[in-house]
Every structure is written in structure tokens, then in C-alpha cells.
Design a protein around this nucleic acid. Structure first.
Lengths: 153, 153
DNA sequence: TATTGTTATACTCTATAACTATA
DNA sequence: TATAGTTATAGAGTATAACAATA
């Protein structure tokens, strides 16, 4: 279902009453905006996922696949992109010669900061219908639904 | 990004702090559960969208495509499915001989009620981490984000 | 000339299989 | 025998093109 094309003003009346449907629709709208902002940077969600994970330190390619829920063949292309942009580097794993360890290059770290700025801007715009207090509540409720201990951004 | 495979307990730490990411992750989880429940009924989101829209009365095929944001060629298959299940019927449009008007059959109306029961059950389960009051708040905040006048389920 | 519904086709994403080189 | 990374391939899902019938 293409929630983004379902009408200009919002979801159809007869479907918009369900909380689950609303959740899907709002999330699709947000994804559309984030995606467009990232595309302007030449990146997609996969790229951002990899870069963000690597801020915690280098990681073998196989763990990146696991952590992001991306199949290994797809990860090959993602890393080729990022390496082509000079954002990451693949180097031999110190002990396992089958594996490649993926490092975040300085340019990649700068890009992560740029992404965070974009994220902040899009978030501020997207959640502008809510007051600051409402945003906190929304974040807290999402955290509860995600089944994690509540932590604030 | 396959948000459903990103770990059993929740989104990765380094990504889960952003409200936008949390929204995408929670929505993907919900979609996964709704999708599984619908699949057990032999339906998908497109089928449900069509059936739900038709509860308001018959509609030409072209308007169904518009309202659901589904391309016309895809709608052909969706309606073939639903007609095969005996849930809808396509009949000649009274005035425009190019068009086909799609009607909800009695069996289709019963199925809509079954879907609503499934929806209610999955919703209750999915939002069980929230109190009743929190669910209302969540629904209201989603409605504000969807840019519609607040209406309750 | 434009629109409805259809078929045919292309393109993107995602998933699986199979191969190599290691372990 | 199993795993890491790769290539090749298959499959959904989705978008476009083109057509016949009608407006």
C-alpha cells in the first residue's frame, strides 16, 4: 500500500480511524521526508545505518549484515557505495583471514555529523505539529512500544 | 532496511535514540504483526483497503486506484483476487460503459467485520505496553501528525 | 483527444544458490 | 564441516508503455 499517495490532506476517512493504520501512515510520511533529505546527500537508509553503527568502532562485514538485518549480498553493494564515496574502508581482519573489517574514515565521521544535522532538521519540521512536551511524550510512548528501557534523545 | 530483523529486543542502541528511527521501527513491528494476522485470513493490506473503502458504497475501479494510491495494473490483480474469493463483484457502470463499478458482496461485508475483529485483537495486543490513557494520547498525537482534525476510534 | 480497464514490459528490492578462500 | 565475502540468479512488488473500447 502506498500510503504517500493516498490523498493530499491525510489518510482516507474510513481507514484513518484505526491507530494501527494511522501509525503506518504517519511513519510512511516521515520515511518519505527522511528518504528525500538523505537522497539529497546521495545516501539511503542502509548507508546511514552502516555509518551510524561504525561510529562505535570497526566491525566485520558479517556483523553489519546481522545488525542491520540486511542480507550479505546486499551489504556488498552498500559497502562498495560507501567505499566509493571515501566514507569507509575495508581492511583485512587481524586474526580471521576470511573476514574484512570495516572502518569509518574521517570523511565518514564528518558525514555522520552532517546526517545528524539533517536528521535534526527533518525531525524538527516533521514533529512541528506537536509541542515540545508532546514530542517528549510521543518519544516515550514509542520507546515503551519498542520494548526498551526509556532513554531520551 | 529490514527493521524486523534488527535484533530480538529492540532497535540497535546507536540508532534507537532518534524519534524518527523509533517511529519507523515501531511501525514496521506493527505492520509485521498486522500483515501476519491478515495473511492468516488470505488477505493483504491492498485487499483490506479495497474492502474497507467499499463499505461506503460501490465505486468505479479507477477511483479505488486513486484512493489507495495503487497503480491501475495492480488493481486488476487485487480485484481478481477479491472477486475470486466472492467478496466483491464488478458490474458495468450505469452511465459510463468504459468503467466497471465494484460492489461489496454480502460475504465481503461479513469479511470486513472479521477483519475489524482481527484488527481489534492485534491492536490490543500490540499496544498492551501502554495504558488505556496512553493509547488515547498516542492516537491523538498521531492524528495531529497526520494533519487531520482529531477524531477518536 | 482523453479516459477505463487490460496486457505486456521494465525496473527495483529482496531473497536464495553457488562458488572461493579460509577456518 | 562451517563461515566470510562474492557473484549469479530468482522472485516480489511496483512503475511505465501500449492497446482496445468508449467518452
Amino acid at each position: 500500500m502506498n500510503y504517500n499517495e493516498m490523498g493530499e490532506g491525510g489518510p482516507p476517512d474510513r481507514l484513518g480511524g484505526s491507530t494501527g493504520f494511522l501509525l503506518a501512515w504517519v511513519s510512511a510520511q516521515a520515511g518519505e521526508r527522511y528518504g528525500a533529505a538523505l537522497a539529497a546527500e546521495g545516501l539511503n537508509a542502509h548507508h546511514v545505518g552502516v555509518l551510524t553503527l561504525l561510529t562505535g568502532g570497526p566491525m566485520p562485514q558479517s556483523r553489519l549484515s546481522e545488525r542491520l538485518g540486511v542480507f550479505k549480498p546486499a551489504m556488498v553493494g552498500i559497502l562498495r557505495d560507501l567505499e566509493g564515496m571515501g566514507l569507509v574502508q575495508r581492511s583485512p581482519h587481524p586474526t580471521d583471514r576470511r573476514a574484512l573489517e570495516v572502518h569509518l574514515l574521517p570523511e565518514g565521521r564528518r558525514r555522520v555529523q552532517a546526517i545528524e544535522a539533517v536528521n535534526q532538521r527533518v525531525t524538527d519540521e516533521f514533529f512541528s505539529p506537536l509541542t515540545a512536551g508532546e514530542r517528549d511524550v510521543f518519544h516515550r510512548l514509542l520507546t515503551k512500544l519498542a520494548g526498551r528501557p526509556p532513554t531520551k534523545e
